[in-house]
Design a binder for these strands. Sequence first.
RNA 1: GCCCAGAUGGUGGAAUUGGUAGACACGAGGGACUUAAAAUCCCUUGGCCAGUGAUGGCCGUACGGGUUCGAUUCCCGUUCCGGGCACCA
Length: 944
Amino acid sequence: MEYNFREIEKKWHQRWVAQQTYKVTEDPNRKKFYVLNMFPYPSGAGLHVGHPLGYIASDIYARYKRLQGFNVLNPMGYDAYGLPAEQYAIQTGQHPAITTEQNIARYREQLDKIGFSFDWSREVRTCEPGYYHWTQWAFQKMFGSFYCNTCKSAQPIEKLVEHFEKEGTANLDVAQSEELSFTANDWNAFDAVKRQQVLMNYRIAYLAETMVNWCPALGTVLANDEVIDGVSERGGFPVEQKKMKQWCLRVSAYAQRLLDGLDTIEWTDSLKETQRNWIGRSEGAEIVFKVKDSDKSFTIFTTRADTMFGVTFMVLAPESELVQELTTPEQKAAVDEYLAYVKKRTERDRISDRKVTGVFSGSYAINPFTGEANPIWISEYVLAGYGTGAIMAVPAHDSRDYAFAKHFGLPIVPLVEGCDVSEESFDAKEGIVCNSPKAGVTPYVDFSLNGLTIKEAIAATKKYVREHNLGRVKVNYRLRDAIFSRQRYWGEPFPVYYKDGMPQMIPEACLPLELPEVDKFLPTETGEPPLGNAKCWAWDTKNNKVVDNALIDNTTVFPLELNTMPGFAGSSAYYLRYMDPHDDKALVSAAADEYWQAVDLYVGGSEHATGHLIYSRFWNKFLFDLGVSCKEEPFQKLVNQGMIQGRSNFVYRIKDSNTFVSLGLKDQYDTTPLHVDVNIVSGDVLDIEAFKAWRPEYATAEFILEDGKYVCGWAVEKMSKSMFNVVNPDMIVEKFGADTLRLYEMFLGPVEQAKPWDTNGIDGSHRFLKKFWNLFWNKDSFAVTDDEPTKEEMKSLHKLIKKVSEDIEVFSYNTSIPAFMIATNELSQLKCNKRAVLEPMVVLIAPFAPHIAEELWEALGHNTTVCDAQWPALDEKYLVEDTVKMMVAFNGKTRFGIDFPADADNATIEAAARNHELTPKYLEGKQIVKIIIVPKRMINIVIK
RNA sequence: GCCCAGAUGGUGGAAUUGGUAGACACGAGGGACUUAAAAUCCCUUGGCCAGUGAUGGCCGUACGGGUUCGAUUCCCGUUCCGGGCACCA
């Protein structure tokens, strides 16, 4: 019987569906295991061979865990909201829901061919009301919560109101946008609108006028992680800074917990490092500087409190509110001119040319340590969004301050013994402090830092600042709050209406608030987001329903929010929804959450390090505070699959001709390399007829061949349509079968590593499956017998059990596949066709190649699927060797191995080594100095 | 600039974590079967040198040092590639 993969795979796909083989239910009697892939955005291009890599890797793990007796949750769904469907809608008028539906159908068709063990009954789509119900619900909960720094958790906003009623802002330690100060009496005197405004300062989901990354080409704002080098991540359009009223999530409140949580999870060091950088914790001090000849003062943030005696000027961010306050009338014209200049510059300009620019404000600040008056400058190198938007400049020990001081001729005072600041600043945090005044010399401070190390000096200064009320010790984070509004159509609508200009939540019982229909997907003529085109988009508070805009009276019927939520909203808690996907009472029931806990193994690309993987952790921590999720960290172990790159092929056209020259001869001509479709190239040899047919202009092409062949050049590039290097998994499945594809993708290299796709090697994997098949079949008869296997055959099997079990645990599939090949070859040479060996082999290969495993399992006479089999147990006794080969080395040079009984002791080995008849050649005229025996490995004989 | 991870044949990659470097696969070369092709099977395949030959010798894991009886593996320095952060005070 031949290995007919087409029939086998078709048969088992049908049977798996019919028998619901992969449906899972909570079962308290079985241990659970939750495997998850980052769900895909269903793009119009369909899957290429790179996409399934992570799915295959995790599917192998899921199947393995199941064979080990775990109740495995391995779901799949779609991150269905996204820009491409919306842009397609703008161009063609086709509703994004239709585009998305079509793309999902195509994805599903492609995924089904590869034989995954997904429980499709748990599929989620972020764009379905039953799903985004809970996205909206979570948003409302965030709106109704504030973050308490003392109890380190989110709390209902009502608690904060209670606090205000009793003591105003006294004794308040909470996360907030600005530090407000009012009494209980003040609060009680505020009207409803004012109270709402105040509460906005504390809510975890809040509306605020903020500087946003505005992308005019896309017509929307973007989050920081969606902007790369000053251009949009999608499309590469320029991004500018703009002040807009936006929904924000107070992610920054969770900065410390996001940082601490990293120590409790099994992620790669590099990914944790990326998140630590992104969170950007820095410990320092906030110090208050008084303005000279004024009652004003302002606060700066520094991590180098030890450099107080080296401050020679101050700098404000151009966007800082202090700029208007501190600019003197004489300097106003110059400052205004500078501000206009800064405003013109985009984020990209700032990054590309780092010119030293700035202007003097006219004011001076008094250094609280020395009493010196330092000029206050304004410069774009100070960022408004970090710290307090103002710094003290210490040019001797900060390279940016140094460049500024040199450019504007400001003084530079070094503070570290032996440092040379004539050419550049001394930024290192190592050395002994000098140049601080002797104790008692200034009327301002009564201590000196001279002689301390920098670290000691920082600590001493902080202590002094705290004790003398000059400021406070402060931890700052680079992590900013997430902008949560997008001016788009194809996203979750906010369950929010506006009354007196203040947002109100629609009642929880009325969720989900469904996305309305619009005639046009573009922004309105007045510049409002696409939802401004909706005719029926107003909230009737009497009847609690969406009604026609014409009914808006602002007494009972109010306008609804026109923005929608960003892409990360729907993907932030989807792993919880998979636990209980059809629950219409809760995001996830307590029982389901209690059973599945959190994702045990999460597989996906590292490109989500500062996006989805931060937002999800934040979102989950919030739900944890609410008691919805029982685990604080959502993803216990995370594996980043490497990207599969394309391997492009090139042909070389001789300039101004239609003649193409083969790779080896191209240097003799003046040629232009052109991408050629990799599907008409095999082993870098061009199929000339297919090439001529590929494009009309090549129909008359001529070729200069080498050895009768046209050899193409190649390069590794991103897999993309424009480079003609996209390899479609359907074609591979059609030609070789899904099992071959699965095996080959895993064999290609370590899962975590980026690697180019090269279809050429796939034959090897396919051949292996045929050999494996042929262990069971002899021509057309099933050849498996019940004979007793030999020890040697059992050894082959148990070596394999050991290797494969160990490899799967550490995701090292690329080395277990060779182990299968070796075992198959050994058994094939031994002509082993015994059930006791072959049956466990089928179970071992089932995670990797499930279709062939099912077929053979059935042929072995089982009437259950191989998925319900037991992972074979390792019996070490078959691996114990009778003899051990010890390597013998003379002065470190390895010469040969000698077999010893496995239980030989060192004395026996040493005696044998001394007397061994194989050694005289090396011992002639030499003397043994010592013999070192490395247990079970090596006898090292030192001779003289 | 700072942080993280790497560098092994023609190619993808192994190496029990300090013990015979190059498993396995691709590609290449040779052979068997065949009228032929496909398919299948077998042999060779890091480099250099010696030998008719079995075989033997030397070099070899980016580069330069070090530790060790012994280093792809550990330590120090250099170069190069990839990733993250970046006027973050």
